[in-house]
Design a protein around this nucleic acid. Structure first.
Lengths: 139, 139
DNA sequence: GAATATATTCGACAACTGTCGAATTTGTCA
DNA sequence: TGACAAATTCGACAGTTGTCGAATATATTC
């Protein structure tokens, strides 16, 4: 038996998830509170940025059409649940950014962070730790 | 006289640059060829994704209105130049992503990269080098 | 200077986003 | 059962984005 070396993952072909600004705000609440109603989400959001119930509900319905949420009906009530994970959403957001602005590869991004985003000594150290850990935990 | 330690930069208040997909494609050509005409940009873009001249021109005019490009007229010709740097655009794109998807801070992003984006040993090593260099060059 | 080639102008349109209010449906309770 | 409350439905609208063609203006070339 060969080593348990991972077989190269066959590039996931699932299209990347792309959320709009409003969708991100809603998804964050849903991930936290699901299953939950539109009202619950609206009440939570109203504290940060004021939006009418129907605004939130409309957006959530559209998200369900897009396959980001599912609706479970209980009598008169609709309970929403996420169909995508936070990881998927983060991946989509990150890759879109990387592709648009950094040629799709990490190196230019890292270069940019260090040269222009003022990575502090502490951040750098933290990063280094993370990277080291990564080194020891895979391939 | 105190050490030449940098004074904390007073958070730049310039609003972050945000480009759309089409704008990114155009900006890349402009950065490379400026000053250049809409025709030049269109000819370059037509190779990758086919777009009519008027599509490119309309978008560039809108970008001028938004302050991303300036137009210098020479007789009948309009020469476009960038008003924003690639760094500014990258910064905008990166920060938008960070804010939306990673709480606005680097650590969760790095965590994500290592756990879910399959940072390879080589990439990790490269990253480590960059970070080390950063450590020695600042603060 | 007439024909040809190049640019610019500008209105138009569909899709997507963010936003809401009004009408309707469905509970709940005294 | 009738009144009040809570949810849902749905049409609407303005702003942005991506797209383009037709009309117009401006060179260039025989």
């Amino acid at each position: 038996m060969s080593k348990s070396r991972k077989v190269k993952k066959p590039n996931q072909r699932k299209p990347l998830v792309e959320l709009t600004e409003a969708e991100w705000e809603i998804m964050k609440v849903v991930w936290e509170k699901q299953p939950c109603s539109a009202g619950t989400v609206q009440e939570k959001l109203v504290k940060s940025r004021d939006r009418a119930y129907s605004t939130v509900k409309t957006t959530m319905d559209r998200m369900a059409e897009k396959g980001f949420l599912t609706i479970k009906r209980i009598r008169n009530l609709q309970l929403f649940q996420a169909c995508i994970s936070e990881i998927d959403a983060r991946r989509g957001e990150f890759r879109k950014m990387l592709k648009r602005a950094f040629d799709g590869t990490l190196t230019p991004l890292m270069q940019f962070l260090i040269e222009h985003e003022g990575l502090s000594k502490e951040e750098a150290s933290q990063l280094r730790k993370l990277v080291t850990r990564a080194k020891n935990s895979k391939d």
